[in-house]
Amino acid sequence: METLSNLFKIRGEMSRKAYLATVVGTFAAVFVLWSLLSYSQLVDPTFLPSPGTVGKTFWHSVLSADFWGYVGISSYRVLMGYLFTCLLAIPLGILAGTFKFAEAVLVPLTEFIRYMPATAFIPLIIVWIGLGEPAKIMVIFVGCFFQMLLMVADNARAVSNDLLQASYTLGAGKLQVLRKVLLPALLPELMNTMRLIMGWAWSYLIAAELFAASSGLGFMIIRAQRYLQTDMIFMGILVIGMLGLIIDRLFALLNKKLFPWAEGGR
């Protein structure tokens, strides 16, 4: 069949409709599998709650002020950790990707630290700055900063040399090349990096909240585990997933709006 062989063409194209249908189909398949396993009692509900139970838990939570408080405090932590990460990692990354000296100072050290698991720093962070909000924000920062610096440096390095040289031949000075060429040229890829790091920030938030918190979505999950409320765990994970998805889509939309000139576009 021609259409079938099309599916296995390397870098082949697919109509938007068929693509969407496949996406919806995959989601539906996972949902059906989940329903089958849970409603048939094939798996004990203690381990795998049914979609209905999780839905009910979700509904109850949506109506409770506690839940929204958790969503709020978790979002706040993510945002703060993410903000500090961006404020430091973006300028340093651009420096490292632009100047050899800055690269020598920043990149090897960062590469080294990057391989230390950020979660292993949590006990240290607690010893250093206690259990308060700064500690959680710090965990997110430690988890994201080093990765982001390296990625931003790559983004800056990826700006075509020809573009920089062309601007020199048009009379641009060093500062002008930085401001008028390098920065605008790297922005779309920088936005992509920011989008990826946002995902990381959520992961480290949960890590921080699992260890030491009395509020937040991570705390909600760990508390549910203590009481074997698997439906609550499921719900917590799904909520975090949805929050992440919403933010990710917002980034994608922003990217399209801000950079209509970019080739391809994701």
Binding site: S160, D162, L163, Q165, A166, S167, V181, P184, A185, L187, F259, W261, A262, E263
Partner: peptide, 9 residues
């Protein structure tokens, strides 16, 4: 230049 060096933005 031989390569395209217009500023895409």
């Amino acid at each position: 230049f031989q390569s395209y060096t217009l500023f895409p933005w």
